[in-house]
Each structure stands twice: as C-alpha cells, then as structure tokens.
Amino acid sequence: MSTKATIYDNRPKWMQKEDKRYACQTFCKFSKKCTSNLGYTCKKLGGDVIPVILFQQKRK
C-alpha cells in the first residue's frame, strides 16, 4: 500500500521568494550572475529547471 503526501506552503509569497534566494546565494557560485533565482528547482542544486546565467564577454 502506497501513501502519497502533499505538502502545501501556506506562508506569504515574500517568504517563499526569500527562501529561494537564500538557497541560491548560499549554495550556487553563479548566484550573482543568475537572473532566475529558482532555489532548489534549479538544475545546479538538483532540480530540473535550467537557470538563466548572464556572462559578459571581456573586452579586448
């Protein structure tokens, strides 16, 4: 017999957003260049969504 549990996050949106930003800033070396700030759904942190990272080319 398999039991499925669904977890709902009832906190305010700003708290959820802050948690995602914290995960990125703490565990990802590209956090300053990333425009996504996906949190744990990011591919770099074990999720399945590919982040958008902006790199600037060096001028010659």
Rank of each mutant, 00 (worst) to 15 (best):
M1V: 06
M1E: 15
M1P: 08
S2A: 14
S2R: 13
T3W: 02
K4P: 02
K4R: 12
K4M: 14
T6A: 10
T6C: 11
T6M: 02
T6D: 06
I7G: 09
Y8I: 15
Y8M: 14
Y8E: 15
D9V: 13
D9A: 04
N10K: 13
N10Y: 13
N10H: 09
N10C: 09
R11G: 06
P12Q: 06
K13S: 06
W14V: 05
W14F: 14
W14S: 11
W14Y: 14
M15L: 06
M15R: 07
M15S: 07
Q16V: 05
Q16G: 00
Q16C: 04
K20T: 00
K20L: 01
K20M: 03
R21S: 01
R21G: 00
R21V: 04
A23D: 09
A23W: 05
A23H: 10
C24E: 00
C24V: 01
Q25E: 15
Q25F: 11
Q25C: 10
T26A: 01
T26G: 05
T26Y: 14
T26H: 08
F27T: 04
F27L: 13
C28S: 08
C28K: 07
C28N: 00
C28G: 05
C28T: 11
K29P: 09
K29I: 05
K29D: 14
F30Q: 08
K33R: 12
K33F: 10
K33S: 10
C34W: 02
T35I: 11
T35L: 07
T35H: 05
S36V: 04
N37K: 09
N37L: 14
L38G: 03
L38C: 00
G39S: 14
G39D: 01
Y40K: 02
Y40H: 04
Y40D: 04
T41V: 13
C42P: 07
C42S: 08
K43R: 15
K43G: 03
K43N: 12
K43M: 07
K43A: 15
K44P: 02
L45A: 01
L45K: 08
G46A: 07
G46S: 05
G46E: 05
G46H: 08
G47C: 10
D48S: 14
D48F: 00
V49Y: 10
V49L: 11
I50V: 14
I50N: 12
I50C: 10
I50W: 08
I50K: 06
P51M: 13
V52D: 09
V52N: 07
V52Q: 02
I53Y: 01
I53T: 06
L54S: 05
L54E: 13
L54H: 00
L54P: 00
L54G: 02
Q56T: 12
Q56L: 13
Q57S: 10
Q57H: 15
K58H: 08
R59K: 12
R59M: 05
R59N: 07
K60P: 07
K60D: 10
K60I: 12
K60V: 08
K60S: 04
